[in-house]
Design a protein around this nucleic acid. Structure first.
Lengths: 217, 217
DNA sequence: TTCAGTTATTGACCAACAGTCAGATATATG
DNA sequence: CATATATCTGACTGTTGGTCAATAACTGAA
């Protein structure tokens, strides 16, 4: 049972308010072109105060990613509770992910930012990075659970290692979503210009393709 | 037939040399933490000169991406010349891509940077962006051609639209490669820590999975 | 209510770095 | 050799992430 003092609750509320302000600024200026000065201004606090709540711009951005993955995980967790064959759970998770990034494109950008930071190898041993990693691990676990359920109920081939298959599904989904995201958000994307498709049909095709690779005959 | 004057050839050679210098600096400092001052120093030119050859840091980074995708396309193009079933061409392209980013991780980072720039919607109508997009489109065409060959020779189901399938394969491959890349380069990546795998086996699993979704029975 | 001690806030300031430009240097031409 | 043109340069500027000494707000005891 968590018992937070009034101080702690106020502090937490302010943290949330700052993240709201940051998202608001980013909606206008884009993710990278938002400045700490403007975020502080919108949050109606001094810039120094901003740095009392987030020790760097990177930290603030990661906090956005953290919130996003927390929200997404809540939804993925609910899918796992449904009484459905494993293969259907996997499909539903795919669409849950799709709808989430469609409704929250900024969070998707934040997810990519998080991975970029991991890649660059900076900010290791930071608590916010750890939280983000835990969320990612949790999402991964939801997928693996669904796969295990599917292997149990016979809806998914059991010739793959569920964890390895989980990584593949996770990675491939992110890649395809990213593609779809580009189509919708980039002004011009020559690769995609030739192809008539909407997000939904692309993802449906993708899930079908993966599905027919995983499904038991 | 391109006939370049000595001037033009010298200019081109210097451009190449600057990109070499930039890659060298990035190998040490990482992609983002390299400064134009240091790149100029390593290239043994003044900073002002650097800006005569690349109009911004972004342009220079995109030039690296451009070179990378040009090199990759050369290899993909060669695969397409082999006398093999379409499904095998697709598999070979997958491994070509894998080996390329394994041997040239910096180019892979550059590719991601290019997509990031597209996402942010900056630098539209810049010639270097256009070149990068053309390369991406070319790579995409190689995949689609291989799919068409496979649909012709019967090794690939023809129930999918080859272009849509191409986008799916392209996106999914990038996503899975990215995952594998993280495992190798990020210091810690909790999602991946649990799973014992090497790049090769993950990609093999992925290609097998996609393959069994595409293959004719 | 007062006041010392503690905590929270602030914005002027600093350092780093992308990008500029007036002047210097090299090269071509007659 | 002299002039014109092309190329190069690094000191300078503007912006922005991050700091810190000064200030304000709060707290609890007398």
């Amino acid at each position: 049972m968590e018992k937070l003092s009034r101080k702690d609750r106020e502090r937490e509320a302010k943290r949330v308010m700052i993240i709201d302000a940051a998202l608001q600024v980013m909606k206008v200026n884009g993710f990278e072109h938002s400045t700490m000065d403007e975020i502080a201004e919108v949050a109606e606090i001094g810039k120094g105060t901003l740095y009392l709540y987030f020790k760097s711009k990177t930290s603030l951005y990661l906090a956005i990613s953290e919130r996003g993955s927390r929200l997404l995980n809540e939804q993925l967790g609910k899918v796992l509770l449904l009484e459905l064959p494993g293969i259907t759970l996997i499909e539903k998770m795919g669409f849950t992910y799709l709808n989430f990034i469609r409704e929250n494109p900024l969070y998707f950008t934040a997810f990519n930012y998080f991975e970029h930071i991991l890649n660059e190898g900076q900010m290791t041993n930071s608590p916010i990075i750890e939280q983000c990693e835990n969320h990612a691990k949790e999402a991964m676990t939801y997928i693996v659970r669904a796969l295990q359920i599917g292997m149990q109920d016979g809806s998914i081939k059991n010739s793959y290692d569920p964890k390895e298959l989980g990584i593949i599904i996770w990675g491939a989904s992110k890649g395809v979503m990213h593609m779809a995201f580009l189509k919708n958000h980039a002004n011009h994307m020559k690769i995609l210009d030739d192809v008539e498709f909407d997000l939904q049909s692309l993802i449906t095709g993708f899930i079908e393709l993966l599905g027919s690779g995983m499904k038991n005959d």
